[in-house]
Each structure stands twice: as structure tokens, then as C-alpha cells.
Design a protein around this nucleic acid. Structure first.
Lengths: 250, 250
DNA sequence: GAGTGGTCTAGACCACCCA
DNA sequence: GGGTGGTCTAGACCACTCC
């Protein structure tokens, strides 16, 4: 047997016990002091082991109460049909459409503004830097049953969105995409670029992400024919969300 | 100004300086001792701040040398056409097809076996638990230029794959999917379920993932008509990979 | 007030790198 | 051999919860 770092061994031992059901979902783990004496290590070492299990999503912590085996919250699977035209013409934006499917109460707070497009945005929207283009920014915090579950910042060329309803807080029934279509930008397809990363401290707080738990980042670009008309940077808690895609075999 | 935890403030200060270019890509940050005296904190506090920046992918560490501003490795974007029939008939598996696009040298080590399907696998493959089905397991470690970049474990019903080339280490040109099609299972579509999580210590070591850095998990199911013929659990370093999907607007 | 998780300090040791 | 990052220890303090 290889000699491991103490905190790794402790994490592995506890993980085995959780898997084996010694501590069931929702149950309390031994306290810090108990684990210290059981494994004969210092407080910090126990903490490191627990931090690992928290990062894996196995354990939740509550200050003043204890460490608890996580009861897996139901995971929301964001499926492909959330972008369907049918949903849109029924007057639902993508988030509201998810809410209807998931049976929770949605709430969105929006901050709308206008700014010079930064390089990343320009490249996604294929804007000509020489013309120093402006974009309309829609910065949204989305809540489900009061809890923040998504952050989304989307950018639209000011040339398209400026002075329209897309520059108001409430874009109306069907959301941004419905307005774009009314304006003659019939949406043909979307690309989504999916990545994962650790949250900045501020995001971790907003999304109530457990320590060390990653967030999923989706960059969605909406196209009307060849033209990119919107880019949306979406941040999701990976504890709560999975993304589902369907791919046809040619 | 709100009072923050010291390590959060230190991380923010260093992040600002990196953004501002005080320390450019590849350059060394001040050493632990220097940061301790600069911020007037203990070693562990500096370490916590650095750990945060490492988790964000901004900073890399090298024992005995120092902390360095990460030079972003080029990110591989796994696009949708990696599953195209064209690639397959050219004799490339999906991984080799990625390699050809990315211009690196691929290497795969495979472990093939057979086992009783666990519940998760059964449900993806829609196997009847009453018949206690077996599956062929293909456990693969994929390397690019010698470095491990993907872990993939795929399961095929033994009823289909048993005794065929799919139970050998080398599945031949075009890989698993090509063999399936030859056997009469013409692939019609795939679903991919994307999630992110923190790596287990073993995965972190294999994938050489920086501390606290998440991995992307993709569960891909291959369908021949209505029938699920393979499920593949793929683990990727999120530092190296992004996934690209295209979605048609109905 | 006692117990809990979370953080910070000060000091120590180790493995590693480089001159 | 001196500097570096990484970890562990022992002890302390804080905010929080529960009684």
C-alpha cells in the first residue's frame, strides 16, 4: 500500500463509509473533534478531508450544526427543446420554459445597459472592431423558488437592439428571441460552447455553490442565417444542472 | 467597503494585478515569504489565496520553483462533427478524429472486460434488470503527446458485443462505432449529458488537473434506431476542453 | 454556555529545484 | 545549501446554532 497524504486517506475512508451507508443521506457525520481524535490528526487536516468531500458534492456543511451527507437535490436537465420555436410562440422565454417544465416559480432581475463591446464579445458576434461597436447588455439573475440558479449576461449589437424593447427591462412575452424574430431576424440555429470552471468568490456566494464546487459556463450564440445576433454567457451551478444534447448521426 | 476574509482579499488583489499585467503570462509571482510579509499574514493564508487562483486556472504552481501566471494552453473545442459518419468511414474513431484536427499524437491504453451491469449503466442502456444483463466494459486512458487528456469507460450489452471484435483491445479502423454499424446496428443519433464536478484524487493525478480544478463529465449514449447500443462515460480536464454543440431552431 | 464549522497564526517538516 | 511550494500541528478566535 502506498503512503498517502493523511487528508487524502481520511477523505477516502469517509467516502467509503458514506458509500457503504454507515452515514445515510441527510445524516450527520462525526464532528470535527471526534474525527480529530479518531484519526489522530489536527483540526486542519480533518478540514482538508471534508473540503475534498464537499467539492465532490458528497457532503454539505452547516456552521454551528455539523457536516451532513448530501441528499442529492433533483438535477435539472436542460434539454435541447428549450430553444424550440414552439415554446417561444407560446410566449415563454427559455428560462420560463424550463420553469414550466420543472414546476418551480421563476423570478428574474434584470439590469440593462449599453457599452463598448469587449474583444471576446466582438469575436462571438463577429463585429467589426474598426467601427468600435456598441452592444446592449442584459445582465440577469434568475431565481427558482427564491434561490439563485442561473446568472446570464447577454449582448446584442446596438445596431440591432438599440432603442427597441430589447433595451427595456421587460422584453415581453417570448423574451428576447421572440422580439428578434418580430424584428425580422428569424433565428435559424444556435451554438453552445460548454466549459466548466471554479467560481469566483462572488459567484459562489450568489449561486450558493458549495466550497470548491465548479460552475458550468455556457456561451450561447443565436444566429439569424449567417448573422450572429446575440451572445449569452450563462453560469450554472453544476450541483443542480446537467445539460442534455442530442446529435444526429448525419 | 465590506470586511472580507483575508484570503479572499489577497486573491482579489493578486487577480487584479494579473489582469492589469503586473505579472504577465508565464511570469513568476512573488514567493510565499514575500507575500506573507507584504500582506502581513501567515503562510496558510497566502496558500488559501493562491489555491483560489489555481482553482480559477489563473495560476500554476511548481514545487521548488514558484507560482506562475498561467499561459493559457490552447483549448480544444470538441465539435459536433466528431461523431460524423464521414470521419468514421475514413477509419477514425472519435478520439483519433480529434487528434487529426488538433495535430497532436494520440495514444490509447485499453482494458477490456466483462461485468454485471450496475444500475446506472442498465438504465442508460435500457436493459432489463430481471435478466441480470452483462456488459462488455472498455476502460480507456487517452493520451495526447504523452499527456493524459481523457478518461473513457464505455459499456455495451454483452448480447451485442460479446465474442466480437468489440471485446478485443483493438477494435480496428473506425473504432467501436464502425464495428457496430458493420454488425447491423446503424447509428442514428447520440445523446450527450454534460455535467461538471470536482475530480476524485486519482482522477486529478491522472489528468494532471490543477488543484481544485473541475472536470467535465460527458455521458454519451449511442442509439441504433430506438435501441441504446453503447453508453460512454467520458471525463475531461476542463482546463483543456470545451464542448461545442449546434442546435437547429426547429 | 457549550458545541460546531471555518479561519488564522506560528512554527515545523518534507520533497523538490537550482546554483 | 538555501529557497520554494505543500502539508501538518497546536492553539486561538469568531460566528453560528441549539439548549
Amino acid at each position: 500500500m502506498v503512503r498517502m497524504k493523511p487528508w487524502v486517506e481520511i477523505a477516502e475512508e469517509l467516502r467509503r463509509e458514506i458509500d457503504r451507508g454507515v452515514y445515510g443521506p441527510g445524516e450527520r457525520l462525526p464532528s470535527g473533534s471526534e474525527l480529530m481524535s479518531r484519526f489522530g490528526v489536527a483540526r486542519q487536516t480533518v478540514q482538508n478531508a471534508i473540503d475534498q468531500l464537499r467539492a465532490e458534492g458528497l457532503v454539505l456543511s452547516a456552521v454551528g450544526k455539523g457536516w451532513f451527507v448530501s441528499e442529492r437535490k433533483p438535477i435539472v436537465r436542460l434539454a435541447r427543446n428549450r430553444l424550440s420555436k414552439a415554446e417561444r410562440t407560446e410566449g415563454r422565454g427559455t428560462f420560463l420554459s424550463d420553469a414550466a417544465a420543472g414546476r418551480w416559480t421563476p423570478a428574474v432581475t434584470v439590469k440593462v445597459g449599453r457599452e463598448r463591446a469587449r474583444e471576446e464579445v466582438r469575436s462571438y458576434l463577429e463585429l467589426d472592431p474598426a467601427r468600435d461597436p456598441e452592444v446592449v447588455v442584459r445582465d440577469r439573475v434568475m431565481r427558482a423558488d427564491g434561490e439563485v440558479v442561473q446568472l446570464a449576461v447577454s449582448y446584442l449589437p446596438a445596431e440591432i437592439a438599440g432603442g427597441t424593447r430589447l433595451e427595456e427591462a421587460d422584453t415581453g412575452p417570448g423574451g428576447t428571441y421572440a422580439r428578434l424574430e418580430e424584428m425580422g431576424f428569424g433565428l435559424t440555429h444556435f451554438t453552445e460552447v460548454v466549459s466548466a470552471r471554479s467560481p469566483r468568490p462572488r459567484e459562489a456566494e450568489l449561486l450558493q455553490v458549495p466550497f470548491g464546487f465548479p460552475v458550468i459556463q455556457v456561451v450561447r450564440v443565436a444566429f439569424a442565417g449567417d448573422r450572429a445576433v446575440e451572445v449569452n454567457f450563462i453560469t450554472l451551478s453544476s450541483e443542480r444542472y446537467q445539460l442534455v444534447y442530442q446529435i444526429d448521426a448525419d
